[in-house]
Amino acid sequence: MNKVIKNVTEAVQGIEDNMTLMLGGFGLCGIPENSIAALVKMNVTGLTCISNNAGVDDFGLGLLLQNKQIKKMISSYVGENDEFERQMLSGELEVDLIPQGSLAERCRAGGAGIPAFFTPAGYGTEVAEGKEVRVFNGKPHILESALHADFAIVKAWKGDTDGNLVFKATARNFNPMMAMAGKITIAEVEELLPAGELNPNEIHTPGIFVQRIFKGEKFEKRIEQRTTRTK
C-alpha cells in the first residue's frame, strides 16, 4: 500500500486550527523538523500539542510557541525555553505536565485500544489530583487515561513506501507510540526506500500505523548539549 506523498506541504494538509497534534522527539532528538517548519508557514493556531518537550526558543516546537500557535502543551519537561516559561506564567499558554513514563504509556494506550490504566507514578503528588486511586498488591496507583491526536507527526531514520519505519539510536523515543495514536500519522524520514528494501525483522513501526510518508528535505539535527571528552 503506497503511503508516499510528494512533500511536506502535502503532508500537513488537513491540519486545522484548534486540532490536537502529537509530535515525536525527546529534546531536539528525533523531532519532525520539516513538518514543524511547515506548520509555522501554514500558521494554524489554537493547537494542543502533545510532546515530551517544547523545543528551545528558536528550534523545534519553540518555533510554534514564538508564533503563538499553541494553546495548550501536554509534556513532561519544558525547561530550556524562556518563551515557554513566559507564556505559561502569564497564562497565555495552558500547560499539562505529566510524568514521562505516563505520557509514553498514555500515547501507547491511545493507539492500542486501552482507554485507561493504573500506574504508581505520581501517587501522592499534584499529578494525582482528581484521579481515581486504587490499591494493587498493597501499593496505591492512579488512573491515567489514553491520549489521542487528530494528527501524529513522527520522524524516522529510514522508511519505505508502505510506511514501515526504522529509527536511529535514541531518536526513537516517543515516535513509535505516537505513530500508533494518531488518527492520521505523518512520518518524515531521512531515507525513503521502495517496499521490500527494509528487512521485515528489523522494522520498529509497522506501516499500518502510518498514513503519509515523505522524505524530509533537510535535517538540521541540532544538538542541545554538546558534551565531549578529549582524546
Binding site: A169, A171, N173, T228
Partner: peptide, 27 residues
C-alpha cells in the same frame, strides 16, 4: 530513560551524534 541501555562516556570531539543522547540531552 530516553531509550538506551549500556550508555558509555561522552564522545570524542568531532564524533558527536545528534541522534545519540542521554536523558540530560547530552551527546
Amino acid at each position: 530513560e530516553n531509550g538506551v541501555l549500556g550508555m558509555g562516556p561522552f564522545p570524542f570531539e568531532g564524533e558527536e551524534d545528534a541522534d545519540l543522547i542521554n536523558a540530560g540531552k547530552q551527546t
